[in-house]
Nucleic acid binder design. Structure first.
Length: 114
DNA sequence: CTAATGACGTATC
DNA sequence: CGATACGCCATTA
């Protein structure tokens, strides 16, 4: 992997997002113990090896918009993957009020125990 | 070392 | 809601 600053921690957090739910970059950064490093989360996903089956598509902007430009390959791909998990995507954005992941203590503990 | 960059976020207008 | 500006920070040039 491209060195190892905090990428592993971020990947782990992303993996903890349950199917059918989404999280924002800032939220992931925060949960990973890296407040203010939302951009680093994006970079981490960019360099993440596909072999680990990372649910990168469950990560979007704080506004609910997909991280990619509407109409782009990646955006359409992401939207499709999300809808496979019952997540509604309209105009390249997701209704956070309904689908944003709210980590519970059990899930946090599971991640820590991992 | 300095400058630019980016799958971001918040505040303004 | 859209367009800008600025802040953040690891990484790259």
């Amino acid at each position: 992997m491209a060195r190892n600053p905090h990428y592993t921690q971020i990947w782990q957090t992303v993996c903890a997002i349950p199917a059918g739910k989404v999280a924002s970059y800032g939220q992931i950064a925060d949960l990973a113990g890296l407040p203010g490093r939302a951009r680093l989360v994006g970079k981490s996903l960019g360099v993440a090896p596909k072999e680990m089956n990372l649910p990168w598509f469950r990560v979007l902007r704080s506004s609910g918009q997909l991280a990619f430009a509407a109409g782009s390959e990646q955006a359409l791909n992401q939207a499709g993957l999300l809808q496979e998990e019952n997540v509604v995507v309209l105009r390249n954005r997701v209704k956070l009020a309904e689908f944003q992941w709210k980590p519970t203590l059990d899930e946090m503990l599971w991640k820590l125990n991992h």
